[in-house]
Amino acid sequence: MGYLLKIWQLRHFWLALVRIDLKNRYRRAVIGMGWSLLHPILMTVVLSVVFGTFFGVRDVKYFAPYVLSGLVFWNYISANCMQGCHCFFQGESYIRQHPAPLAIYPLRTMLGAGFHFLLGLAVVLVVVWCINGFGNLPHLIDLVPAFVLLFFFGWSLAILLGVANVMFQDCQHLIEVLLQMLFYLTPVFYPREMLQQRHVEWIANVNPLAVMLELIRMPVLDGKTPSLSCYGIGLLVTCIAVGAAVGTLVRLERRLIFYL
């Protein structure tokens, strides 16, 4: 608790860092924030065309926001992993000067990624509203627990991989490969039914990332409340990640500076 309080007391510091990160990213871009959205939107267009023409996905109206929400979600996860790897190096000069709680540096990474996630989700919502009308509005409240889970899940990921990368420099390459694998194992850009048709639906059922993605997609795309078991799995996975992150910090928080 004291630790969380310290983090809260330094909120001006890490919030300012998040702001500068966002500002830097868009400073040289003419269309500013559009850039971070343009990438998933273009990918969506490409994938919709490809799947619509070659794989016989007929319902492009449903498929486009489906892919976009998947990519937005995936970008959040992979940003937490890849940028999380660098979070302590990024904050190294602060760490060397001031004994602030180390968790604020992964928090900086996560909040930056989270900002883009929310921005992307807003676009998804607009697309869904344009296509299907406002039927999903009453179910958007179901996103709140999902956001809470994703907040802690992303933060924990960044902490774990940040520490891992300080200890072993090649972690980021391993993570890159692992992420690529997970990307194909998660129904991010292909319809879930494709797994069903090939009787490998269990892949999506045991993959916690797929479950988390469902927590976002169900309310937004289908206007349904995700089942309790979905929330249960999400909560369980988040708790495991948080537990691992807390354990790592308890063990290594003070000593991490020796490895930087």
Binding site: F13, I20, N24, R27, Q97
Partner: peptide
């Protein structure tokens, strides 16, 4: 080590704020 710990892309004014926040 005071000459470390700047956000290189940010202006001097902004860095005054960041350092200040870090110092509480």
């Amino acid at each position: 080590d005071i000459s470390l710990g700047f956000e290189m892309e940010a202006s001097g004014w902004d860095n005054i704020k960041y350092r200040g926040y870090l110092q509480g």
